[in-house]
């Protein structure tokens, strides 16, 4: 599907997953936040992680994106071991993420958010060019920014300070910032929480477009079942830090154990 995997893919062989995490455990003092969790994500695939609040979903994201260091377990991304790498290095390998509690840069406009991410990715600009050359965006950078703004429908607020936006727009800005890093794997932590139906629809559409055009793999923590059904092909279910089910979306959502733990349906 994506140029990176096409070359390695053989017709009758299962392709090596883009992300392979096995046996991830994380303990906070007395609390076992994650116990021996393994997930894998193929290139270009969309996977959802669901589970009740406090199940360890965000902790899993934090361990995978490098914000937290797992106590045990291995993470392999595109053939490379990640355990010893921090969030910055993982980001440079092509892993981007958004946050459950929205994390925007105060006092920066929407366009600045994207431009900062662009510069961080490309490594252009630095003290020397700030001092002796222009730090203004080049035409190419401008065009890349504009493409993301258009994709997410943010072009009418591009000059607004990001703090002043609604939560829904804020989540889109976070997504845009992540997309500027040209990720091959995108972690989205509850992208629809706090969004109304229209905004959720907008978000889903944008994600579908991104996947179609760039073949980005997406891992999504989400409570909105219709959105999960629409986007994800496979689901992992976490409860009390353990994986209690995984498989194709429809199968898992109809699973009795899952319904009991998560959807609150009596068995």
């Amino acid at each position: 599907m994506t140029p990176t995997t096409d070359s390695t893919e053989h017709p009758n062989e299962q392709p090596a997953p883009l992300l392979q995490a096995s046996g991830i455990s994380k303990r906070f003092a007395g609390l076992m936040a994650l116990a021996d969790v393994s997930i894998q994500v193929g290139a270009g695939e969309t996977v959802a992680v669901i589970g009740p609040n406090g199940a360890g979903k965000s902790t899993l994201f934090n361990c995978l994106s490098g914000v937290l260091r797992a106590d045990r377990g291995t993470v392999t991304f595109d053939g490379q071991r990640l355990e010893s790498l921090g969030p910055t290095q993982r980001s440079r390998l092509g892993i981007a993420r958004t946050f459950q509690r929205i994390e925007l840069f105060g006092g920066m406009t929407v366009r600045d958010h994207l431009m900062v991410a662009e510069r961080a990715r490309s490594g252009r600009g630095g003290l020397w060019s700030d001092l002796f050359r222009s730090s203004k965006p080049t035409e190419e950078e401008y065009a890349r920014c504009q493409a993301v703004l258009d994709l997410l429908g943010l072009d009418d607020v591009e000059d607004r300070s990001a703090d002043s936006l609604s939560l829904g727009k804020g989540r889109l800005v976070e997504l845009g910032r992540a997309l500027m890093c040209e990720p091959r794997l995108l972690f989205l932590d509850e992208p629809s929480s706090g969004l109304d139906r229209n905004e959720t629809e907008e978000m889903s559409l944008a994600l579908e477009t991104v996947q179609r055009e760039h073949g980005t793999a997406v891992v999504l923590i989400e409570h909105d079942v219709p959105m999960v059904q629409r986007l994800a092909t496979r689901i992992y279910v976490l409860d009390y830090g353990s994986l209690i089910a995984s498989g194709n979306t429809m199968d898992v959502l109809e699973d009795e154990v899952v319904r009991a733990a998560y959807l609150g349906v009596a068995t």
């Binding site: 994106s65 969030p87 946050f99 840069f105 006092g107 992540a178 890093c181």
Partner: peptide, 17 residues
């Protein structure tokens, strides 16, 4: 800009490299 990003949200700044 990088420094501003780090001050206002270190986690987010790290997440974009």
């Amino acid at each position: 800009r990088f420094l501003q990003a780090i001050q206002s949200s270190p986690t987010a700044a790290n997440s974009i490299g």
